[in-house]
């Protein structure tokens, strides 16, 4: 797949928040590539920098957050080099995003139709109102919502329906790449399931690439072909999703996460957590950020940041994999 042009190329990206306590390094030297039609998962704990990265890709960082270094290219285009006008056109045409908080992503005082039509007419001024309304109806068909809800207000819809509307808005202009930032977090398990099935279905028809952000390991493993695991603002492992099980070779943090998944079919349900808490992003530990919590940590882990090593199925940033081939980028 590497011969194709990636839709997303992140190079040495760092994002920081300016706070009273100093710089919070939310994303540190991240590299990531997403290829067309591919679904890549991004997993990590709360506060590991997943959403910050998504906002950085969309150039939507607000207030005190800013990119301190690195480049982001979406379909070969550097979003940070675009003028505000070009940016407004580029976004949503080529790259769109489904937000974490579907419940509040819709304007409460506008009908579903107006909000979809707004998206269309903002980018396609030549489109007539009637055409836009027709397209809005088609989009609701795609996400399987009755067309009568075109005239509904967000408060008249259930959480799952609202999230479907948000997805409809995200795919309105047939972008090549969609970021989904925890699209099912606010929903109950049954609705989660149906939305996921739908995302997969639509993705297979529309052929867009997806960066699927979640903290739910099993969900991502099922949906994505590759999974990036994020810890303290770094991608510590990029692995094929089929090999995400204990017994394969993984980063100690990934193994900790895998052990934390309850196996309900087992005779006795044992859930193991990872001891300790995520590091303070103002003062990151020296060396490997995970070493204070790592059961296998050595002196070296404390002193030096590990390099990347290529195993059969994954690229892992950990000193334990020294025997494997060293690589520069994920």
């Amino acid at each position: 797949m590497s011969d194709r042009k990636p839709v997303l190329e992140i190079e040495d990206l760092s994002v920081a928040y300016q706070t009273a306590n100093g710089l919070v390094n939310a994303v540190n030297d991240v590299n990531l590539k997403v290829y067309p039609e591919e679904i890549v998962g991004l997993v990590g704990e709360s506060g590991s920098g997943k959403s910050t990265m998504a906002y950085a890709i969309m150039r939507l960082l607000k207030g005190d957050a800013f990119v301190t270094k690195g480049h982001i290219k979406v379909m070969g285009e550097d979003l940070y080099a675009l003028s505000p006008k070009e940016l407004r056109k580029f976004r949503w045409n080529k790259i769109s995003m489904v937000f974490q908080s579907a419940m509040s992503a819709l304007n409460p005082v506008m009908t579903v139709q107006t909000q979809i039509v707004d998206t269309l007419t903002s980018h396609r001024p030549e489109m007539s109102k009637a055409e836009a309304i027709k397209r809005a109806g088609e989009l609701l068909d795609v996400v399987r919502i009755d067309r009568k809800h075109l005239n509904s207000y967000p408060h008249e819809l259930s959480g799952g329906m609202r999230q479907r509307v948000v997805i409809a808005i995200a795919i309105a202009l047939s972008p090549g790449f969609v970021i989904m930032d925890e699209p099912t977090t606010a929903l109950d398990v049954v609705v989660q399931r149906s939305i996921l099935d739908q995302i997969r279905e639509i993705q297979q028809v529309e052929k867009f690439a997806v960066l699927f952000i979640s903290h739910d390991f099993s969900l991502v493993a099922e949906l994505a072909s590759q999974v990036a695991i994020m810890y303290a603002g770094r991608i510590v492992e990029l692995t094929k999703s089929g090999t995400l099980r204990l017994g394969e070779r993984h980063h100690p943090y990934t193994e900790g996460l895998l052990r934390a998944i309850p196996h309900l079919t087992a005779d006795e349900v044992v859930i193991e957590g990872i001891p300790g808490t995520p590091p303070n992003l103002v003062n990151l530990p020296s060396g490997c950020a995970f070493y204070p919590r790592c059961p296998l940590a050595t002196d070296e882990c404390r002193k030096a940041r590990p390099n990347l090593y290529q195993t059969d199925n994954a690229i892992i940033e950990c000193h334990l994999f020294k025997g494997d081939r060293e690589v520069q980028h994920v």
Binding site: L60, K62, R91, W92, S96, F99, S104, A105, V166, I169
Partner: peptide, 17 residues
């Protein structure tokens, strides 16, 4: 600061609107 404003900005709604 609401999400729907960020969402609307992202989806390309013109500034005045």
């Amino acid at each position: 600061g609401e999400d729907y404003i960020v969402f609307a900005e992202a989806k390309g709604v013109p500034t005045r609107r």
